[in-house]
Design a protein around this nucleic acid. Structure first.
Length: 792
DNA sequence: GATAGCCGGGG
DNA sequence: GTGTACGGCTATC
């Protein structure tokens, strides 16, 4: 008797039953999670015959490969748009593919093997058109105690709240770095979306209600798995859990001789390799490591959890000295309680980070059509590729192979010209209007139909890339432009719907919109990405060439037709001078430009700015109408600059932009220089922080922070890789490095004023002042030069 | 300046 | 598991 179930698809995998692969769909229902099985899907790949497909088919069936082959079918497909006859070879089990593929490769008349490396479950999701993190209506039949899938339908309903658990472990580390063969896990902290907060441990901890003390490490680990099972969590998140927490847990389990049913259907924790990095898999749930995700989305100097949460969530969190964590455990009492609180705080902030990034990755998972677990580990190029693969199959397009060996090496060596950057008018500029092209690169791909299948090399005129011998046929819409057009259309539709939505719906839509934007903007990079299946250097090169043509064309219209002064422009943006009384020119200019633009390419007005300071290409600062400073390329936010240098630079920019008073800015600099000389600064103002990335001995060249670390060690301090070393440069005749002193031992009277003036303050502001015609000597000494060129 | 080699996060 | 990262920085020529 068939039954109808409704479930939200979380994860999928397969198990082998009687030699056949059985797909398992893990779903969240309205009342808890459940599993549906599908036995109707078999692995397959393609062989391309040179000609005479019938005869090649016979040879394949006569070859030694025949035993594992279920069937060979002749299909009409396309490869890069060109019709090709392909032999679809169906086998019994995914693991048959590598073996059978190698046999068939050697069969006479087989030119190429395709689609031979597409993981079974991913292939299943593509071919069945099933999208993760959507509601499915499933028709199932009970067989051997399993719900077997007989029919499936995608539903358009609002997603449920996912159940999320954030996890963090603390380990004993008497030797600094923990050794998983010896050092026990001492705490496991968990914070979940349904409000559970726990610190599991196996020694007494005072004064923290969330603590649960177990008998030993083994009992603690088992309790952890029980907690996950009880809460039936869909997503397990952590920070660097792929590389640290779960591999460590795996090692301890091996040591203790137990297994840990962390997954659904009591699946064990598995740690495998994904490229050079490990990947921890918890079947039936999504395991999302937020560390690589944060790295992908935010540019920071450091990705230690403390700086990430401070930057992204505004939460100030204390970092315990990782090297000495074991002492907190050994000492007990207040110290151990502090460690437990630290552990819980880590789980809490990890959960908060998940709330920030998971919605985006859920949308990406649905759009790309692969599981959250997989999508969380994909780069933007891989996201684009899996999206293309999902579209290719129903369109009859064969999926090209990844490049191998020399092919890849040759692609990686190839370079081509990128965007056009106009040399800025250096110095201060009043009344700036900024325009930019909306999604220029995606628009070019669509408008010029840029695709491997439409590329014509040499001897062509129509739709030719500027300065290049490449044209793109307009006869048939290319595969990539067609998909990109669809993404752009959906994004525009969502943007319209966003305007009339609110609450949860609005939140979902805004993340879907963001996901589509990320994907659309990745297509250009994808075509030039050497590992791409649909790589075509000529296409990426042409997109960049068209972009240069358009931005130059717009600059020409501004200068020649509107007599506007163009002060800067980079790739897809344009900065012109428009005084307040002539603001209506902006709209006229926009209209004129857009009349001349083909397809969906469109210039947009970005905003008016009161003033700008242009230093060099890619280095400038703007002051918006509401008084906000926008700084590009100039920020010395790096911690390896002394705070006094960063602050002086910021203040100089502020004075120049807000008051347009270079003399005042110069006075400020001379003031700071004077203060440094007279030692009217604090130690904190002049402390430079650099991370010690390896052991002192492994450094060949002695950089200042390494010398400072050496001095720390000489005076009995523990020093280990990962520490942030704070140091100041003291007076003396030796090199700078030798004069680096740990801030812990430094006194204000020791520092070298000339170092801070010449190597910190002046470099940070020199370029800015040079842009307005001030020399270094003038700033430093106040030397008046009659010939001094001024800033107008 | 080019290129090879190393490193990240975690405790 | 139908598989095997990546981009940025430093060292060194």
């Amino acid at each position: 008797m068939p039954r109808i179930l409704k479930g939200f698809l979380i994860d999928a995998d397969y198990e082998t039953v009687e030699g056949r692969a059985l797909i398992r769909l893990f779903l969240r229902g309205e009342e808890g999670s459940f599993v549906v099985y599908d036995d109707s899907f078999s692995p397959y790949f393609y062989a391309l015959p040179g000609d005479e497909p019938e005869r090649v088919k016979e040879r394949i069936l006569a070859s030694g490969a025949a035993e594992a082959i279920q069937k060979v079918e002749i299909e009409e497909k396309r490869l890069f748009g060109t019709p090709r006859v392909a032999l679809r070879i169906t086998v019994s089990h995914p693991q048959d593919v590598p073996r059978i593929r190698e046999r068939i490769r050697r069969v006479e008349g087989v030119d190429l093997i395709l689609e031979h490396d597409i993981l079974f479950v991913r292939r299943y999701l593509i071919d069945r058109g099933i999208k993760p993190l959507t509601w499915l209506r499933l028709e199932v039949e009970e067989r051997d105690g399993r719900a077997l899938l007989r029919g499936v339908e995608q539903l358009e309903e609002e997603p449920p709240e996912l159940r999320v658990a954030a996890v963090d472990i603390e380990v004993y580390n008497p030797k600094g770095a923990p050794r998983s063969s010896k050092d026990e896990i001492i705490m496991i902290s968990v914070a979940t979306s349904d409000g559970v907060e726990k610190v599991l441990t196996w020694r007494e901890v005072q004064g923290l209600e969330q603590v649960e003390v177990l008998q030993d490490e083994k009992e603690m680990l088992l309790r952890f798995a029980e907690l996950i099972k009880e809460g039936d969590y869909d997503v397990i998140v952590g920070y660097n859990t792929d590389s640290f927490d779960f591999p460590y847990i795996r090692d301890r389990l091996k040591k203790l001789g137990i297994s840990l049913p962390l997954g659904r259907l009591d699946a064990e924790l598995e740690v495998s390799r994904r490229g050079a990095l490990p990947e921890a898999r918890i079947r039936g749930r999504a395991h999302v490591d937020l560390y690589p995700i944060v790295r992908r989305h935010v540019k920071l100097n450091s990705y230690v959890l403390e700086s990430v949460v401070e930057e992204l969530l505004g939460i100030k969190k204390e970092k315990l000295d990782g090297e000495r964590l074991f002492t907190y455990w050994d000492e007990g009492g207040e110290k151990r309680a502090l460690l437990a609180r630290y552990a819980l705080e880590d789980a809490r902030v990890t959960l908060a980070l998940a709330e920030k990034f998971l919605p985006l990755y859920c949308e990406l998972s649905t759009i790309v059509g692969q599981s959250l677990n997989d999508v969380a580990r994909m780069t933007s190029g891989q996201l684009v590729e899996w999206l293309l693969m999902r579209y290719a199959t129903p369109r009859g397009e064969l999926i090209p192979n990844h490049p191998a060996g020399e092919e890849y090496a040759a692609r990686a060596r190839a370079t081509y010209a990128g965007g056009y950057v106009r040399e800025p008018k250096r110095g201060l500029v009043e009344h700036i209007a900024v325009f930019d092209f909306r999604s220029l690169y995606p628009s070019i791909i669509v408008s010029h139909n840029i695709d491997p299948s439409t590329l014509i090399v040499g001897n062509c005129e129509e739709n030719r890339a500027p300065e290049l011998e490449y044209c793109f046929s307009l006869e048939r819409e290319g595969f990539i432009p067609a998909i990109l057009k669809e993404l752009i259309r959906r994004r525009a539709e969502i943007k319209r719907e966003l305007k009339r939505s609110e609450g949860d719906r609005r939140r979902t839509l805004s993340f879907a919109e963001k996901a589509l934007k990320i994907l659309a903007n990745s297509f250009y990079g994808y075509m030039g990405y050497p590992r791409a299946r649909w790589y075509r250097r000529e296409c990426a090169e042409s997109v960049a060439a068209f972009a240069r043509m358009y931005i130059k064309q717009v600059m020409r219209i501004a200068e020649e037709e509107f007599k506007l002064e163009v002060v800067y422009g980079d790739t897809d943006s344009l900065f012109v001078v428009i005084p307040p009384e002539k603001r209506e020119l902006a709209q006229k200019f926009l209209q004129k430009v857009n009349e001349s633009m083909p397809g969906i390419i469109e210039l947009e007005f970005e905003g008016f700015y009161r003033r700008g300071l242009f230093v060099t290409k890619k280095r400038y600062a703007l002051l918006s109408e509401d008084g906000k400073m926008v700084v590009k390329g100039l920020e010395f936010v790096r911690r390896d600059w002394a705070p006094i240098a960063r602050e002086t630079q910021k203040e100089v920019l502020r004075i120049l932009l807000e008051e347009a008073d270079p003399e005042k800015a110069a006075r400020l600099v001379r003031d700071v220089i004077e203060r440094i000389r007279q030692r009217r600064v604090s130690l904190e103002d002049i402390t430079i922080y650099t991370q010690l990335t390896k052991r002192i001995k492994s450094y060949k060249s002695l950089e200042p922070h390494v010398v400072a670390a050496q001095k720390l060690k000489e005076r009995g301090r523990e020093v280990a890789p990962g520490m942030i070393i704070g140091y100041i440069i003291t007076k003396g005749t030796k090199g700078i490095s030798q004069r680096a002193t740990p801030v812990e031992f430094a006194r204000l009277e020791d520092y070298d004023p000339e170092y801070y003036i010449d190597n910190q303050i002046l470099p940070a502001i020199q370029r800015i002042f040079e842009a307005i015609g001030y020399t270094r000597d003038y700033l430093k000494e106040g030397i008046t030069q009659t010939s001094l060129s001024r800033w107008f």
